[in-house]
């Protein structure tokens, strides 16, 4: 693994950022539009999926995870998985008959 000078290696163009930003805005529009429809359970699912996609866009491009060393991506995965596991294990209590 080589790093140390990496900071200077990746200059991300303004265009890339603006494209991502436009993407984020469109997803915001979509999610608001979908929320107006009555799709029962799917409302929650769609809203969360769109939020997740937006979050991934922010993390990979704005937060440079795409361009950083592997170790950062592993770290982020570990942290997010930890949170998910906390959530899932807690729901092993709530989502079954108590």
């Amino acid at each position: 693994m080589d790093h140390g000078t990496k900071n200077h290696a990746h200059v991300i163009g303004y265009g890339t950022y603006i494209l991502v930003w436009l993407g984020l805005l469109s997803f915001t529009g979509i999610t608001v539009a979908v929320a107006g429809m009555d799709l029962q359970f799917y409302n929650i699912a769609i809203a969360l999926i769109i939020a997740t996609v937006k979050a991934i866009m922010v993390m990979t491009i704005f937060m440079h995870l795409k361009f950083e060393d592997r170790v950062f991506r592993i770290f982020a995965t570990v942290a997010i998985l930890t949170l998910l596991i906390f959530l899932v294990l807690t729901f092993f209590d709530y989502s079954f008959a108590r």
Binding site: T82, I85, L89, F92, D93, Y94, S95, F96, A97, R98
Partner: peptide
């Protein structure tokens, strides 16, 4: 060790699965 916390709570009346 991060996944076993609820063993402090076996008497509180959790779901059987938990």
């Amino acid at each position: 060790g991060s996944l076993v916390w609820a063993h402090h709570m076996f008497t509180v009346g959790m779901s059987d699965t938990a």
